[in-house]
Amino acid sequence: MSTTQPLFQHHKHCDEIFADAEEACSNGDWAAGAGAFASFAGQLEAHFLSEEEVLFPAFESATGMTSGPTEVMRGEHRQMRDLLAQMKQALADRDSDGFGGTAETLLIMMQQHNMKEENILYPMCDSALGGTDIGNSIAQRLAAS
């Protein structure tokens, strides 16, 4: 298992629960939507924290790159957290247009973010952190979330 494989797999898991939340809310099924959204928001936050508290510091200390790609990724996490907060508000207001529009925005933001991680940053991390136990520790954190 490579260092970042658990995070790679967790991206797909987040996609799946995102789709559940979006579908339920766009159909006006707010009860199911609220449950799916809470699960999605929790998993996304756990994913961000695994990167910000474990992967990125390890990568930065191994390579000395503190203001490079990891900083950009942290910035995008902030943007996605803001979008999550907007979705939560739209859910509370039963505003399906607002929820759908923000969900669409978050989806694209999240997908291009994932692509950048999977195609560029994760391979860099795998190469810098090969032979460490970082991957297992991330897998455990995600499994506990």
Partner: peptide, 27 residues
């Protein structure tokens, strides 16, 4: 139809406004 709304959003949020002030893609 997908690129232009996302481009709008992307460039608007780079103006420095809080994300909540930037209209979503469906607008």
């Amino acid at each position: 139809y997908k690129i232009t709304p996302f481009l709008n959003w992307l460039h608007l949020q780079r103006l420095g406004a809080p994300i909540s002030a930037v209209p979503n893609m469906k607008k």
